[in-house]
Design a binder for these strands. Structure first.
Lengths: 153, 153
DNA sequence: CGGGATCCAATTTGATACTG
DNA sequence: CAGTATCAAATTGGATCCCG
């Protein structure tokens, strides 16, 4: 995920944050938009939050409900992921000032639009990842076999 | 990236590797195809290798040439990324037994097909990441400002 | 309830040096 | 040339405890 507080502007002048995109926008430079997107969707829970928020009937979901729909996530990671998404304007946060307070999350229009590319990725995964996994197992077996051979005295 | 040698089958029985996909294929379980794909494309150099191999005129590229086209990558990371992709059957490796040896890489059909979903992601990134970055800067400024206020004695 | 703050373990990446 | 091996640094994720 993007550094939580590491990106804070040095106090005293406003963050301009236009590092003069070095080359063309190639994947290797950190300011490349694709690289930045990949860093986000690659982080463990981001895509799932987007998916859950986009596939629910009601468009707002509360923190606890969200957590319940994502078995295995800790409060910390859920809060962290949500704040990252909020920072990116992909998610909106609404607080009901009751006691105890209720906090609702929803995708922004921008966030909702991200679900489409992710759906394409999901589709590819469902079509082809089985083949990838099979290839991986076969490769591992070949490696194990090779190692056994070279260990013979 | 998937563990390099951690996935080796215990010597003595073949790896069956069908962990009875726990629930539906939801993103949170490690055997979910989308999760596995995300782990791969999320790793730093994978997507770039796919892009470079898919966008070149000649369909085979040598190791050094590949490295030259990816400023910033180390030999180690390039080799590691390539072997991961080879393990996944997304890339094929061909060795010319000359001296010194020449090693050529190319995308498999499977690997080439992955470029399409990635292109969709790239397109979204180019359309919308600027907005995301702007939102991030604004958020950081708000946070910095809030902190300054709370620091007043 | 909805987090923030800490501490810690595991992974990932990078720099460097060595080799067939 | 095309790697492998090793070590150190940086990130990331998770477990916990605490708080309004």
């Amino acid at each position: 995920m993007a550094g939580e507080e590491s990106t804070l502007a040095p106090p005293g002048h406003l963050a301009v944050t236009t590092p003069a995109r070095s080359l063309r926008g190639d994947l290797f430079d950190p300011s490349c938009p694709t690289r930045q997107l990949l860093d986000r969707v690659g982080s463990k829970w981001t895509s799932m939050v987007v998916k859950v928020l986009s596939s629910t009937g009601v468009d707002e979901v509360r923190f606890a409900e969200l957590k319940r729909r994502m078995p295995g996530i800790s409060q910390k990671m859920l809060a962290q992921t949500l704040r990252s998404l909020e920072r990116d304007s992909l998610v909106e946060r609404r607080v009901e000032a009751t006691s105890p307070p209720r906090v609702h999350y929803r995708l922004t229009t921008l966030g909702a639009s991200l679900d489409e590319p992710l759906a394409v990725l999901r589709e590819w995964a469902e079509l082809h990842m089985y083949e990838v996994e099979q290839a991986g197992s076969a490769w591992d077996n070949r490696v194990a076999h090779t190692q056994l051979l070279s260990e013979q005295p």
